[in-house]
């Protein structure tokens, strides 16, 4: 168990180091950082002095270590476009993305799990079949199109809901929340549904598949033979055994939701990290790109690590046999 955790942590560190290397390489090979910082009227001498002061003449691996050291403290320098510290820019937008992702995850779970249970229990029912067909359409419908359709219907035609921005926000310390104002909550509805739909279909299909699997198990047949009624069979026995993989996948999907938020944020002009990142690609704003790259990798690696460790803890079967090879 301990050796498994240590191995997984080492592997995570390796991944982070690789990502840091890519982010660092971006700085190295794309343009001249001095040119990006100063105006055209700066003399060559001043440029050379700045280059020396910033340590850009040091050997490359020293620069890399400095980059990693700064990254660990959350510093990625100044944005080329906004002329503000990257940490500040990302910090301002962090809460917007997290709130959106959180609400979407809740919607996806609250709607997806019951739909999955229902379609598993009434396999041949008309409603189940239409759920399954809808979920296939959901998979083929790209997130941004769902967003555009929702905007078209609820934002443009009926004008019921705001179709862009975050509404009014309340600042609690450095965290800005849209939960406390009516316009903030209203602005949250369309983007969070857009972001939730794909995950919802995924969770529904997963719960259904797992539930069907468990229903075939011997202990369910035995329960039936014992004369248990359907309700306790489905919910006390089958569902309980279904939930472990469902929780795992849902945990893993949290990262995906944050990543997919890039698309939703672009559609709804939601002022989150994803929108910042997309704009940064357009502007070749490398400090922001590098910071986002490292941050999103960190989120994914952490989530994976936690889920892996939890999974081994929850499921005792995994503790003995595959303790050496994670990620199987």
């Amino acid at each position: 168990m301990i050796s498994f955790i240590v191995k997984r942590i080492l592997q995570s560190l390796l991944v982070m180091l690789a990502v840091a290397l890519i982010a660092f390489a971006l700085f190295q090979f794309v343009g001249d950082p001095i040119n990006n910082m100063v105006g055209q009227d700066t003399s060559l001498l001043d440029r050379e002095k700045l280059r020396q002061d910033l340590g850009l003449n040091d050997p490359i691996f020293i620069q890399f270590f400095r980059f990693v050291g700064n990254a660990l403290r959350g510093e990625f320098g100044f944005s080329y476009v906004h002329r503000l510290p990257v940490s500040q820019l990302i910090g301002e937008r962090f809460s917007a993305t997290i709130e959106l992702s959180f609400v979407s995850a809740v919607i996806a779970l609250v709607v997806g799990v019951p739909m999955g249970i229902y379609t598993a229990i009434n396999r041949r029912g008309l409603l189940s079949r239409s759920f399954m067909t809808l979920s296939l359409i959901g998979v083929s419908l790209p997130t941004f199109l769902i967003g555009i359709l929702l905007i078209l219907v609820f934002g443009v035609s009926f004008r019921w809901l705001p179709a862009f921005g975050r509404g009014e926000v309340v600042n609690i310390g450095w965290w800005s929340t849209g939960f406390l104002t009516a316009s903030g909550l209203k602005a949250l509805i369309l983007p969070s549904i857009t972001l939730a739909l794909f995950q919802m279909t995924l969770i529904m299909r997963l719960v259904r598949a797992e539930m069907l699997e468990v229903m075939r198990a011997d202990f369910i047949k035995f329960g039936r033979a014992r004369g248990l009624n359907n309700r306790s069979l489905y919910f006390r026995h089958a569902l309980k055994n279904t939930l472990i993989p469902v929780i795992t996948i849902t945990g893993l999907q949290l990262g995906s939701i944050i990543a997919f938020a890039i698309i939703t944020e672009s559609v709804f002009q939601w002022p989150g990290m994803g929108l910042l990142f997309i704009q940064a690609i357009g502007d070749a704003d490398i400090p922001i790109m590098a910071a986002y790259l490292v941050l999103i990798a960190l989120i994914f690696v952490l989530i994976n690590l936690i889920v892996d460790i939890l999974y081994v803890r929850i499921d005792p079967r995994l503790r003995t046999s595959t303790s050496g090879s994670g990620g199987q």
Binding site: G255, S256, F260, I262, I263, F277, I296, N304
Partner: peptide, 13 residues
Amino acid sequence: SFPAILIALLVDG
């Protein structure tokens, strides 16, 4: 462990 679309977006970016 990363969604395909994110990898594609990062590589493309």
